[in-house]
C-alpha cells in the first residue's frame, strides 16, 4: 500500500499543536509507516510541494495577510485539509485581540508593556505582514474538511484522526476525543 502524503504548516500559533503532534511518541513511528511527511515547520522542507499532498494540516489562526497566503497555498496543494487546534478551528486565544482596536494592541505590545525597551516603536516595515483588524479561523478563509479542536488537541486524538484517514474512514470526534481546551 502506498503511503499517504502529509504536509503541515502553522499560522498565528504558539506551536503547541505541533508539540502535541510530536507527543504521539512511538505512535508516530507506527503512523509514519503509512504516512509520508513531506513538509512541516519542524522539518527541513517547510512548504507543501507544488505537486500536492493527500492531507494538509494547518494549525493556528489567520491574523495577517501572510498567514492567509500560507493557508490558501496549503488548501491549493492538499486533498484533505484538517484544521487542527482551537486557533485554527475557532480563532482561539489569538482572538483575545479582537476585543480591542488593532492600533491599540500594537502600541500596547510594542511601546507600553513593562518589558518594552525605551524609545521602542511599533515596527512598520513594508516587509512585515499586515495585521488584519480581527483574527479569523482557517474556516473563515478556506474550505476545511475536518475540524480537530483542542488547546492543544491531545496526541491520541491526532493519532486517531490520521489512523482513520490512512484506513480510508471518516474520523468523527465524539466524547473524549472532542475537547476545547
Amino acid at each position: 500500500m502506498a503511503k499517504i502524503t502529509l504536509s503541515t504548516d502553522w499560522l498565528d500559533v504558539c506551536s503547541g499543536c505541533h508539540m502535541s503532534l510530536l507527543d504521539m511518541d512511538e505512535l508516530l513511528i507506527e503512523i509514519l509507516e503509512h504516512v509520508q511527511l513531506l513538509s512541516s515547520p519542524i522539518t527541513d522542507l517547510k512548504h507543501p510541494p507544488e505537486s500536492g499532498v493527500d492531507v494538509g494540516i494547518l494549525t493556528g489562526a489567520v491574523s495577517n495577510d501572510h498567514q492567509e497566503e500560507v493557508a490558501r497555498r496549503m488548501r491549493d496543494r492538499c486533498g484533505i485539509l484538517i484544521s487542527m487546534g482551537d486557533c485554527a478551528v475557532f480563532g482561539g486565544i489569538c482572538t483575545m485581540r479582537n476585543f480591542f482596536d488593532t492600533e491599540e494592541v500594537l502600541s500596547y505590545a510594542y511601546t507600553e508593556t513593562d518589558s518594552t525597551a525605551p524609545e521602542q516603536e511599533v515596527p512598520r516595515s513594508p516587509e512585515i505582514a499586515k495585521l488584519y483588524p480581527t483574527v479569523k479561523s482557517v474556516r473563515d478563509i478556506v474550505k476545511v474538511d475536518y475540524h480537530l479542536p483542542g488547546c492543544p488537541p491531545p496526541a491520541h486524538v491526532i493519532a486517531y484522526v490520521l489512523t482513520e484517514l490512512v484506513a480510508g474512514r471518516e474520523p468523527k470526534l465524539t466524547e473524549d476525543l472532542l475537547t476545547y481546551d
Binding site: 480563532g91 480537530l148 470526534l173
Partner: peptide, 16 residues
C-alpha cells in the same frame, strides 16, 4: 460536547 460541535458554522461579529 454533548452535541459534538467541532466547529462553529456562522460568522462571528465579535462585538466588544
Amino acid at each position: 460536547y454533548e452535541y459534538e460541535l467541532d466547529h462553529w458554522k456562522f460568522h462571528r461579529p465579535m462585538p466588544k
